[in-house]
Design a protein around this nucleic acid. Structure first.
Length: 491
RNA sequence: GGCGCAUUCGUCUAGUGGACUAGGACACCUCCCUCUCAAGGAGGAGAUCGGGGGUUCGAAUCCCCCAUGCGCUACCA
């Protein structure tokens, strides 16, 4: 397959979300796997739903995920333009061709008429659909309508009998009875094409070889076959991907916030995953595994491995829920595999954004302590704020550990104070040795002694490993915090 | 209502007629390690493959029916 050309053709109506990203990724993988071209085409023919930020948001998201495009916005290409709004002159000509060949006709019914027609049909428990009243209009009838100032749409003349079928690369043969097929509108009365016309014309003109799209589009595919036949063109090969279900399993993944069975709100926008501190490589891996699998055991795959092994034969046909828990796990795996410098650099912006005055050197030193505790980069904030704030806030009762008295707690603080102030070197190893020695001497449990010291120096019940934390905090800050704890205990 | 697509542990999946007493991962449980939390190690529980009929010496895998879920049914995509 040397001349593989696939495209992702979103409608810019909102932010880049999980469902789009997955379809996009599979197209991209298919192109990369077969050494073909990946094309981005913006289907902005619906002026009512157009969203200004949609395209920039998607391009940003794609760059973040490392998905490049060979032709499309910003990069151009030999088949441009890649915005349908810039190709508008094209579509009426093709609609006219179908009019000329008798495969299409002008329909003068207004939206209101059609709406009423549907209502009536539903009331009579009939299938809603256009009743084709304009299909066989005579020349005179049309002239009369035009004289009234009615502006027509152009409809495809679907066959009334027989059946239309196509071969789906994932599902095999799919066919429908032609009587089920509506006379689709190809050109709206404002001269804009509908999605159905524009897609077919553009896919043909751009020489698209394979169309990989979500499941929910299956019902429109027979119409496309009809259009290809009317134009006398060879259709591309089709593969319909399973949709992503919402975390509850009730319905497909929403394009807005989605609420899980636990009542929690889950992220769906790529920008939200990014802001929460998911790594692009983790999301990439995770997305690739929705509906595709490499084998019976491998879960973690590099981008290169995925490209190398990706194929439609391992794409499942059943819809799947997106597992946020598994994404969290996978993100942790990727975070743990990062080089310290790399991770520190990725954490930094999250700290700054949270308002912490975190210098790069300190962040670099803290990073090894929290690396295996991070699920998301944003978690770094609550793990590290203790290093950058001046006053700790905590309940003094926390200082007193289980099975310990206030007196013993005071003793722990005093002894710590003494040991730590007299240490020649305030490094992690020295601190640990000296303190463990003291624990033994006092006959306490390590968790009791260090528990108290942890609260005193970090203000938290859960914090990074103590000795490394103390070393990074520095002697001065540590002693000051211990003194403050002592004060809190006595007052 | 009509049409279409789907149906393997709670979840994501492996499985393409015998190697399946159905494998892996997440989540869950127990234990170990341990200064907290993690991470890590060892184990455990969890699917009679949606149901019912066939075909076959043999079916999760092929066929039929049913049920359920989802999708489409716009001058939206």
């Amino acid at each position: 397959m040397s001349d593989v050309r696939v495209r992702f053709a979103p409608s810019p109506t909102g932010y880049f979300h999980l469902g789009s990203a997955r379809s996009l990724l599979f197209n991209w993988l298919f192109a990369r796997r077969h050494g073909g071209k990946f094309i981005l085409r913006i289907e902005d023919t619906d002026r009512k739903r157009f969203h200004e930020e949609a395209v920039p948001d998607m391009l940003d998201g794609m760059r973040w995920l490392g998905l490049d495009w060979d032709e499309g916005p910003e990069v151009g290409g030999p088949y441009g333009p890649y915005f349908q709004s810039q190709r508008l002159a094209l579509y009426p000509k093709y609609a006219q061709k179908l009019l000329d060949s008798g495969d299409a006709y002008k329909c003068y019914c207004s939206s209101e008429t059609l709406e009423q027609m549907r209502k009536g049909q539903l009331q009579r428990r009939q299938s809603p659909g256009y009743d084709r009243r304009c299909r066989e209009l005579t020349e005179q009838q049309r002239a009369a309508k035009e004289a009234q100032g009615l502006v027509p749409v152009i409809r495809l003349k679907a066959p009334l009998t027989g059946q239309t079928s196509f071969h789906d690369l994932i599902r095999g043969e799919i066919s429908v009875q032609n009587e089920q097929l509506d006379d689709l509108i190809l050109l709206k009365s404002d001269g804009f094409p509908t999605y159905h016309l524009a897609v077919v014309v553009d896919d043909h003109l751009m020489e698209i070889s394979h169309v990989l799209r979500a499941d929910e589009w299956i019902p429109t595919t027979p119409h496309r076959m009809l259009l290809y036949r009317a134009f006398g063109w060879t259709p591309p090969l089709y593969a319909h991907l399973p949709v992503i279900l919402s975390p509850t399993g009730q319905g497909k993944m929403s394009k807005r916030k989605t609420v899980g069975a636990d009542g929690r709100e889950y992220d769906v926008m790529i920008r939200e995953f990014r802001a929460a501190g998911y790594l692009p490589e983790a999301l990439f891996n995770m997305l690739a595994l929705i509906g595709w699998s490499y084998d019976d055991k491998t879960e973690i795959l590099t981008r290169e491995q995925i490209i190398q092994h990706f194929g439609l034969d391992h794409v499942s046909s059943a819809p799947a829920k997106f597992s946020y828990k598994k994404l969290d796990w996978m993100n942790g795996v990727y975070i743990r595999s990062l080089e310290i410098d790399d991770l520190a650099a990725r954490i930094q912006p999250f700290l700054s954004r949270a308002g912490l005055d975190a210098d790069a050197d300190t962040v670099r030193r803290i990073t090894p302590l929290i690396q295996e505790r991070l699920v998301k980069l944003a978690d770094a904030v609550s793990w590290t704020d203790l290093f950058f704030i001046d006053e700790l806030e905590y309940d003094s009762a926390w200082l007193v550990q289980k099975k310990m008295t206030v007196e013993q707690t005071q003793q722990v603080l005093a002894e710590s104070q003494q040991v730590l102030s007299s240490l020649p070197d305030f490094d992690e190893a020295s601190i640990e040795t000296a303190l463990r020695h003291k624990v033994e001497e006092m006959g306490l449990k390590a968790r009791q002694f260090f528990g108290t010291l942890r609260i005193a120096t970090t203000g938290k019940k859960v914090a990074p490993p103590l000795f490394g934390t103390l070393a990074i905090l520095g002697r001065q800050k540590v002693l000051k915090r211990i003194a403050q704890a002592q004060e809190m205990l006595t007052s």
